[in-house]
């Protein structure tokens, strides 16, 4: 029982640790690709939390085997939820990366602070002129 308790602590603690570390990347780092990596780490932590919530000691994977005697099984629902969540996560990530590539092409940086400065710069200032030269005025049609 003691061992079970420490497994539980390890898993939940590990999941919480992933979430906190990922959150650090999101709030404190400035490069947008690093921020997206942080989001991926947070999602990993949440997925671990869900799967751990459905775990039962001594239970089998939720796949029936006609040859074996059927014993208790772990909860299949969180596993299905996590499968869905993994694919959703990668889809959002890919869209974010596409946006990041396009932004980098237009402005030449992915640093959040620099991007804010460029966007808020009044027209004609050095920053906005640099941006115009670089992206050729971007996509304004």
């Amino acid at each position: 029982m003691n061992e079970l308790l420490s497994i539980g602590n390890l898993l939940y603690g590990g999941a919480a640790g992933l979430i906190v570390i990922g959150l650090f990347a999101v709030v404190a780092r400035r490069h947008l690709i690093r921020v997206l990596l942080g989001v991926a780490v947070i999602e990993a932590g949440v997925n671990l939390m869900l799967v751990a919530a459905g775990f039962r000691p001594g239970a089998a994977a939720p796949i029936f085997d006609p040859q074996a005697i059927s014993g208790p099984m772990v909860d299949p629902i969180p596993q299905a939820l996590v499968l869905t969540a993994i694919v959703i996560g990668v889809a959002v990530l890919a869209l974010g990366l596409t946006l990041a590539i396009r932004i980098h092409r237009q402005y030449g940086t992915l640093d959040t602070v620099a991007l804010t400065r460029i966007v808020n710069a009044p027209a004609g200032s050095p920053e906005s002129r640099a941006m115009m030269q670089r992206g050729g005025g971007g996509h304004e049609s």
Partner: peptide, 17 residues
């Protein structure tokens, strides 16, 4: 995930994640 008896999730995490 394999240790936690979730082979489906383990496969998806390895392939996708």
């Amino acid at each position: 995930f394999v240790v936690l008896r979730a082979p489906d999730v383990a496969m998806a995490e390895a392939a996708v994640g």
